[in-house]
């Protein structure tokens, strides 16, 4: 979105224009939702967090500093909400019992996620991403999915650019290998179960 247009929308939203706020949501919801979904691996978690992030940002829009981009602010708040959600649900994953329950919490265990979801071509990338470290996953999503420059990622994550690049390169290599593996696994499932295979693979697993 053009910066001038964005500024105009923000000013109108501050003045109380509902439609302008709607336009801001429309313009940014896909990117921030995609970001949180890739991080959490769960649609419902992503939806909750993104909604909350939008509510907080729009409720405090009068505090917005026009020197920065709206998207940066929104992503920072969404990321903080996600981190809080992970921190809150973390103890549940520290126990073997809850871990074996198959991820009712915010962030599923990578292996659980793999078992449940890696059966489809569509979810192979998500499954591969969930096997990366949080830093690698986040940097790859920001760089390759959202096309953020290295400098902006470094600023967003409060990390030196060299460290960002290091995470990016290692993560990308691992992602390549993991994605290939998960794709092969998905193909195997498809060949084996044939017509019983559905889009998500949930029926087969059930």
């Amino acid at each position: 979105m053009d910066r001038a247009v964005e500024r105009d929308l923000i000013e109108r939203a501050i003045a109380g224009e509902r439609a302008a706020a709607g336009e801001l949501i429309k313009a940014h919801q896909r990117s921030v939702y995609g970001y949180i979904l890739r991080m959490s691996g769960r649609h419902e978690t992503a939806e909750d967090i993104v909604q909350e992030a939008f509510v907080r940002v729009l409720a405090n829009l009068h505090r917005f500093d026009f020197r920065f981009r709206f998207s940066t602010w929104l992503f920072t708040i969404a990321r903080r909400l996600y981190m809080n959600a992970v921190a809150k649900s973390k103890p549940a994953y520290d126990t073997d019992f809850v871990g074996s329950m198959g991820g009712k919490g915010t962030m599923p265990d990578a292996s659980t996620y793999s078992d449940e979801r890696s059966t489809t071509q569509k979810d192979a990338i998500q499954s591969a991403l969930m096997h990366l470290s949080v830093e690698q996953r986040e940097i790859i999503v920001l760089f390759h999915q959202l096309d953020w420059p290295i400098a902006l990622i470094a600023s967003h994550l409060d990390m030196p650019e060299g460290t960002v690049k290091s995470h990016l390169h290692r993560g990308r290599r691992r992602l390549r290998v993991l994605f290939k593996e998960h794709k092969q696994l998905a193909s195997l499932y498809k060949d084996h179960f044939g017509g019983a295979f559905n889009e998500t693979g949930d029926e087969v697993l059930a």
Partner: peptide, 25 residues
């Protein structure tokens, strides 16, 4: 090519997304 394939799979447009406009407003 494999890397490009993985990056392509992360395309935002492939993600099914609910419209949150009404809910947020």
């Amino acid at each position: 090519l494999e890397t490009a394939d993985a990056v392509r799979a992360m395309n935002l447009d492939d993600i099914p997304m609910p419209d949150m406009q009404c809910a947020v407003l």
